[in-house]
Simulated assay, not measured.
Amino acid sequence: MLWLAGLGVPVYAPEGARLPDLVPLPAAAYPIHDAQLNDRGLASVAGWFAETIPGYRHLVPGDTA
């Protein structure tokens, strides 16, 4: 069994939508590949991932995991 302490979640990629089906849910998940989304898109994706992936937390530049 694979255990992940943290995982980078591809936000602006097809794999992001399938992520919960592909890997065990990690203790923490952080968005990556989100630079092309505007504030409205980021809010939508962050809300959906927060409901789907326990431990999801959106980081802004300067934040640490």
Rank of each mutant, 00 (worst) to 15 (best):
R40Q: 14
A35H: 14
L7S: 02
W3Q: 15
P24T: 09
L4H: 06
P26A: 12
R57L: 07
A17L: 13
D34V: 00
L59F: 03
D63S: 02
R18S: 07
A65M: 01
L7E: 06
I53W: 04
Y56M: 11
H58N: 06
T52V: 14
A29L: 14
P24Q: 14
G41N: 07
G41T: 05
G62F: 09
E51N: 01
P20A: 12
W48H: 10
N38H: 03
L59M: 00
V9Y: 13
I53N: 03
I53S: 03
T64W: 05
L59H: 00
D63C: 09
S44R: 04
N38Y: 05
T52I: 13
V45A: 04
L4V: 02
I32P: 11
P24V: 09
A17N: 07
W48P: 00
R18T: 02
Y12M: 09
V60E: 12
H33P: 01
G6A: 15
A50S: 15
A5Y: 04
A65E: 10
A5V: 04
D39H: 13
P14L: 09
Y12Q: 03
Y12L: 09
E15F: 00
G6F: 05
H33C: 12
G41M: 09
P54Y: 05
V23K: 06
E51T: 02
P31Y: 02
A35W: 08
P10E: 08
A5C: 10
R57T: 07
A29Q: 14
A17M: 08
I32T: 12
L42S: 02
Y56C: 04
V9T: 11
A27W: 04
Y30K: 05
Q36R: 02
A13F: 07
L42V: 12
A46N: 15
L22F: 07
V60S: 15
T64E: 10
A46P: 05
L37T: 02
D34S: 10
G55F: 06
Y12D: 13
D63E: 03
L42D: 00
V11G: 09
R57E: 06
L37A: 13
W3P: 08
H58C: 07
V11E: 04
L7G: 01
A27C: 05
G6T: 02
A50V: 10
D21E: 03
H33M: 11
H58L: 11
V11C: 13
